[in-house]
Amino acid sequence: MGVLAHLYRGEVYRSTIWRTRLDTSTNWSVVTLGVALSITYSSPQASPLPLVLVGILIIFFLMIEARRYRYFNVWRARCRWMELNFMAPMLKEGDLHLEEHWQDRLADDYLHPRYHVSMWTAIGRRIRRNYFWILLIQTIAYLGKLIVHPTPLASTAELLQRAAIGPVPGWLVLTVGAFYCLCWGTIAFISEKQDEKRARMRRDPLGMG
């Protein structure tokens, strides 16, 4: 009993540490986007290019956060498994129900550690929780810059001219930007549907994974 209590405390500590790391990578994305917004809107003549380049950093931070989320999910799942099968039965019935072999599943997770979710699932979840809003603000800010600076937009041809980056034509820049947003939206949507499917099929909806 004492060993399991200390094990639970250790897993809670691990979960807390990795949850903090998730918040840190999100903060990095918010700060870099804020810097790009400040530079881009510092004057009407400022280039919208920083808002394009910050998208690369956002992708980088998203990948880091998804990897960290996979680690966090391992510790979270173990904590939840002990709460569900050890803490709750002890408090409610005073019986651990070892005949259900829940302890074997926990032991196997320690003997053969593995991620409980795929990288794509982790990316989709982080987009839905945080990065959807970051990407939305980036997109709106970029389009807003093209529309209002240096003067209010007068025609579609002018929009394409403002979107051009050096030798890269404006239509190509906007097309790549639309593809960029569509890709992350698609990943988030597919990930959500897969999570819903797993939840329906899972026998222990509050368990590991």
Rank of each mutant, 00 (worst) to 15 (best):
G2R: 15
R9A: 15
Y13E: 15
T16G: 13
T20L: 12
V31F: 14
V31W: 13
S42I: 14
L49Y: 05
L51Q: 05
V52G: 12
G55Q: 01
G55M: 02
L57F: 12
L57P: 03
I58K: 04
F61W: 05
R68C: 10
Y71Q: 13
A77P: 12
R78I: 05
M82S: 02
E83G: 03
M87Q: 10
M87T: 13
K92G: 01
R105C: 01
P113L: 00
R114Y: 00
V117M: 11
M119W: 15
W120C: 08
T121N: 15
L136T: 15
V148N: 07
P150K: 08
L153Y: 00
L153P: 01
A154Y: 04
A154W: 03
T156G: 09
T156P: 08
L159T: 00
I165E: 07
I165W: 13
W171D: 09
L172R: 11
C181M: 14
W184M: 14
G185P: 05
T186L: 11
A188P: 02
A188V: 03
F189N: 11
F189D: 13
S191Y: 12
E192G: 11
E192P: 05
Q194P: 15
K197H: 12
K197L: 14
M201S: 08
R202S: 08
P205D: 06
M208H: 01
